[in-house]
């Protein structure tokens, strides 16, 4: 199949059961997208498919043929961090960093679609992303900061 990730088309061999997350990690070789549960609950595998955040453990790779997939690796522009990344760094919005790629892509979708999000908007937006380290307060602060920048 052909899988377009971060604007690059990859010709890869997949079994029909292969999940998008495994295709991205193992075939395309981009390991910033993480596997936390494979049940669609934790959000660590979040990617953007055709402009919308998606849990890539709940999508068959073949379903993404013809779609534009974006991963965490596309967020920064070279060494220049995206404002959402910078805000998470400044506000200590992560500790171990394992949930971070999913959080960042979810946060980016929110700040791009909702110019001045309320705290409730932020909580709803990151409702599908589990973090076990931070207690979320600093993540909410980071999203708030990113929305303002």
């Amino acid at each position: 199949m052909k899988l377009t990730v971060n604007g690059v088309e990859h010709e890869i061999d997949v079994d029909p059961r292969t999940l998008l997350v495994h295709a991205i990690r193992e075939q395309v070789g981009l390991t910033g997208t993480h596997v936390g549960c494979l049940t669609g609950d934790c959000g660590a595998c979040t990617v953007v498919v055709d402009g919308q955040t998606t849990k890539s453990c709940s999508v068959l790779a073949l379903s993404a043929e013809g779609s534009a997939v974006e991963t965490i690796e596309s967020l920064a522009d070279g060494d220049d961090l995206h404002p959402v990344q910078q805000a998470f760094w400044d506000e200590f919005g992560f500790q171990c960093g394992f949930c971070l790629p999913g959080m960042l892509l979810t946060a980016k979708e929110l700040v791009e679609s909702t110019p001045d999000p309320t705290d409730d908007d932020i909580l709803r937006a990151i409702d599908g992303n589990l973090c076990r380290c931070t207690g979320y307060n600093t993540i909410v602060a980071a999203v708030r900061k990113a929305a303002r920048s």
Binding site: T54, S58, A125, D127
Partner: peptide, 10 residues
């Protein structure tokens, strides 16, 4: 719907 925008999108 529970599960975040990723689930609501999909």
């Amino acid at each position: 719907i529970t599960g975040g925008p990723q689930i609501r999108n999909r």
